[in-house]
């Protein structure tokens, strides 16, 4: 028998310690973010930065939960919901809006209306796709993802085409909107998003035992009496709501979920969603918060966190792939 890896590897951290540690670090990062380098009127700074913090907490949570759920139903730990073409649909919507109406009209839009349109379009698109394609078999799920990829490419191509023919000044406006950023979050939208995310969370939290069973795969789940098709469909809908809300709020950051979910699996070493979900969410918030902190305070940037996230996410993705191949 090969030497037992578990005796060499550091012992698994007890769940309570892990949660407390992560929670503590998250609180520290939030406090640092709120106070570090603050000059001038406190009430303004706290309100300004507080909105950002709230947006990051919400988005980090939504991305972490949606990625873990998506990986659970697909039984695949290198997928993220972005494979279903959400990001590209978002890009297409932004481009079409500016292309059709002009950047001035788009900027004058009621943000709530635009938020509603974006979330509505993304959820409706994915729901139609599921209804149309998902037969309940594992092959059906794979087909669904493949078609999602193809649609994603289509959306991207159309968006790219429109961006070529659009006025260069307008293009700059579009491009700015396509990078995830926490700087332009609207307080009202944040409240609405928080309510939606909370509603989804209640359902998710009550279903953690079912999620544990779904992670065993289709046949084991059916054997244990779970209505696999119905539950997977529900999870898919919840995933698309979470992704749509976070994307409409700050822009596309789904790739980030890959990093977070896999870090969570690494840390908790259990199959129980009751532990995986909160750990993943805390890691997500922590990473977002410290990333933004470094970006804003240390590097003096003010803008696109998604560049850093995609860079780190890409490296982690490669490491995971290589480690799998080596195993």
């Amino acid at each position: 028998m090969p030497p037992n890896r578990r005796t060499i590897a550091p012992r698994v951290i007890p769940p309570a310690v892990l949660l407390a540690g992560l929670g503590g670090l998250t609180v520290v990062s939030i406090v640092l973010f709120l106070t570090l380098g603050a000059r001038g009127n406190w009430s303004f700074i706290l309100a300004f930065r507080g909105t950002k913090v709230a947006a990051m907490v919400l988005v980090g949570y939504a991305i972490a939960v949606s990625t873990v759920l998506f990986q659970t139903i697909t039984n695949n730990r290198i997928l993220t919901p972005s494979i279903m073409g959400f990001d590209f649909l978002y890009r297409l919507i932004q481009t079409v809006l500016v292309f059709q109406l002009g950047s001035a009209a788009v900027a004058a839009f009621d943000p709530r209306l635009r938020f509603g349109i974006e979330v509505g379009a993304m959820v409706a698109f994915s729901w139609l796709l599921y209804r149309w394609l998902f037969s309940g078999s594992v092959r059906g799920l794979h087909l669904l993802m493949l078609v999602g990829i193809v649609f994603g490419v289509l959306f991207r191509s159309v968006a790219n085409f429109l961006q070529r023919v659009i006025d260069p000044n307008e293009f700059l406006v579009v491009q700015d909107r396509l990078f995830a950023s926490f700087n332009r979050v609207d307080g009202q939208l944040l409240a609405v998003s928080a309510l939606v995310v909370l509603a989804v969370s209640v359902v998710v939290w009550r279903k953690t035992a079912v999620l544990d069973v779904l992670a065993l795969g289709r046949e084991a789940a059916i054997n244990l009496g779970v209505d696999h098709r119905r539950e997977v469909m529900r999870v898919l809908v919840m995933v698309s709501v979470l992704v749509a809300v976070s994307t409409a709020l700050v822009g596309p950051v789904t790739f980030f979920g890959l990093l977070v979910a896999n870090l969570a699996y690494l840390l908790v070493d259990t199959h129980r969603h009751r532990l995986i979900l909160p750990v993943a969410a805390l890691i997500a918030i922590l990473v977002l918060m410290s990333g933004q902190l470094v970006l804003e305070r240390l590097l003096g940037f003010n803008g696109a966190l998604s560049i850093v996230i995609e860079f780190l996410g890409g490296i982690v993705f490669l490491i995971i792939l290589v480690r799998r191949a080596a195993r």
């Binding site: 990986q71 046949e219 070493d269």
Partner: peptide
């Protein structure tokens, strides 16, 4: 069934 692959640890 025959092959039981699991991603969950």
């Amino acid at each position: 069934r025959q092959d039981n692959q699991m991603t969950a640890r």
